[in-house]
């Protein structure tokens, strides 16, 4: 099964050679329904905010985004997943193929934060062991309705030893950072020892990078 997927992946990479890129990775955005996964993605890809009615994603949406890392063209194949329960088993099925997972919760929705633990358990169970996992507390602009403190998010991230940041799809806060840091990490991980020889390149630490680059939104508790 895994072998098959591997074969399929390479085949796809070769067929995509028309649009030039050096390396491509699969990134999945996961989390409860309504936490703003699609909005994050749209903000990142198109730089706009999907305002108005909540449009829940049906099934899985698939989009490409090109990023440049160290002068190389990196293609992120981003899966936007539906948060609803009924798609859970399909989501698990796709975990396997993902190089990175962005686990999103809504800082105004305590339950979505509680469920992060379940999501992490699923990730441990279904995803590849060396998957890159980033936890994101979204809607940081809605300070008045905040239910999950920044500190709580930080504490939980520490517990699981994963990278954490708060974002706002509405204002764009930290959105690009989240995706680009992931791109950088994935790219660096993909480099073999041979690539590193003579590059004088320092090893990239995602956690440090994010912690140094991320902006704190105002009045977060």
């Amino acid at each position: 099964m895994n072998g098959q997927n591997q074969a399929r992946r390479t085949r796809i990479s070769s067929s995509l050679s028309s649009t030039e890129f050096d390396v491509s990775f699969k990134v999945m955005v996961i989390g409860d329904s309504g936490v703003g996964k699609t909005c994050l993605l749209v903000r990142y890809k198109d730089g706009t905010f999907l305002d108005g009615n909540f449009i829940s994603t049906v099934g899985f949406d698939f989009k490409n985004k090109m990023v440049e890392v160290d002068g190389k063209r990196v293609k992120l194949q981003i899966w936007d997943t539906a948060g609803q329960e009924r798609f859970r088993s399909m989501t698990h099925n796709f975990f396997r193929n993902a190089s990175a997972l962005l686990l999103v919760y809504d800082i105004c929705n305590a339950q979505s934060f509680v469920n992060v633990a379940n999501w992490i358990a699923d990730v441990k169970r279904y995803a590849s062991p060396n998957v890159t996992l980033v936890m994101i507390g979204n809607k940081s602009d809605c300070s008045s309705q905040r239910m999950v403190k920044y500190k709580d998010g930080e504490r939980l991230a520490k517990e699981y030893n994963i990278v954490f940041l708060e974002t706002s799809a509405k204002t764009g806060l930290n959105v690009d950072l989240a995706f680009e840091a992931v791109a950088q990490e994935l790219y660096n991980n993909s480099l073999t020892a041979a690539d590193l020889v003579g590059s004088h390149k320092e090893s990239f630490d995602l956690k440090n990078y994010v912690d140094s680059e991320k902006e704190r939104s105002n009045c977060c508790g």
């Binding site: 749209v42 449009i55 099934g59 949406d61 698939f62 989009k63 399909m90």
Partner: peptide
């Protein structure tokens, strides 16, 4: 759901009752 599919490609399980009420087909949209 035209507005939520956007311009990407979507993948969705769907059960068509006349075709097979007990199984899902998968729609690439």
């Amino acid at each position: 759901s035209a507005t939520s599919f956007h311009a990407g490609e979507s993948w969705l399980p769907i059960c068509l009752a006349q075709f097979n009420p007990s199984g899902f087909l998968h729609a690439h949209i």
